[in-house]
Simulated assay, not measured.
Amino acid sequence: MPDVVIGHSITVQLPHGFRLIKASDTGKEFISEDRKMRDYKISYFYDWSREDNNIVIVHESPDGKLSGVVMFRLVPNIYHPKRIVVEMLARNFASAGSSGSGYDLLKVIENNVARALHIKRIDIEAVKSLKSYYNSLGYEETGENYYDSSWKEIVNMSKSV
């Protein structure tokens, strides 16, 4: 498993095919199944990753296409993380190998990132229509939901790892 440095000094091992987003990814094709997600180009994820405490991991297929992307932040910060907050998770329908990429990316966060950082809780800001999917993966609603003008009802969910 390749080592990845998060922030300035935190080393995490990621499975083959998973890595941090790079500037060279910004020109790659990425099409989400969700129409609203189609407005988010890879450049958006890359720019977001350059902000403090934000991390973006991609799943790259053997042919070099990005099959999935997850963006998350470390709370309260990258130096003293207590929890991970997943803000966006998407798979690329332009990549034949994208089936299961979202699930695989969540497992990488749970099994590799959270474990390496000794984080015991992962939160997900999920659109309401995906609540049952995240329930099936062990995430439970926290009751701290909110309304987003683009995404409508956002359900905050949490899982102990």
Rank of each mutant, 00 (worst) to 15 (best):
M1H: 07
M1K: 02
V4M: 11
V4D: 02
G7H: 04
V12W: 00
G17M: 04
F18M: 06
K22T: 12
A23D: 13
A23R: 15
S24E: 13
G27R: 08
G27A: 04
E29I: 14
F30W: 02
S32L: 05
E33V: 11
R35Y: 10
K36T: 08
K36M: 07
K36W: 03
D39G: 15
D39F: 09
Y40D: 06
Y40I: 07
K41S: 14
S43V: 13
S43P: 00
Y44C: 06
Y44R: 13
D47H: 12
S49Q: 05
E51T: 05
E51F: 06
D52P: 09
N54M: 12
N54G: 04
I55F: 05
V58W: 02
V58H: 01
E60V: 11
P62D: 13
D63E: 14
D63T: 14
D63V: 11
D63C: 14
G64Y: 10
K65E: 14
S67L: 03
G68K: 01
G68P: 03
M71C: 12
F72E: 00
F72M: 11
F72T: 01
F72A: 03
P76T: 13
I78Q: 09
I78C: 09
H80E: 15
K82A: 11
K82C: 10
K82Y: 09
K82M: 09
R83T: 07
R83G: 02
I84V: 15
I84S: 00
V85T: 13
V86I: 15
V86P: 01
E87V: 03
M88R: 08
L89H: 02
L89M: 09
L89W: 00
R91K: 15
N92C: 12
N92I: 04
F93W: 10
F93Y: 12
G97F: 10
S98M: 03
S99K: 15
S99Y: 11
S99H: 12
G100R: 07
G100F: 08
G100E: 07
S101N: 09
D104M: 10
D104T: 11
K107H: 14
V108S: 01
I109V: 15
I109M: 13
E110S: 12
N111D: 14
N112A: 05
V113T: 04
V113D: 00
V113P: 00
A114L: 02
A114I: 01
R115C: 05
R115S: 06
L117P: 02
H118D: 12
K120N: 13
R121E: 11
D123Q: 09
I124D: 00
I124A: 02
A126Y: 03
V127F: 04
V127Q: 10
K128I: 05
S129V: 07
K131C: 09
E141R: 12
E141Q: 14
G143S: 12
N145F: 04
E153H: 11
V155A: 03
V155Y: 00
V155K: 00
N156W: 06
N156R: 14
S160I: 08
V161T: 08
V161P: 00
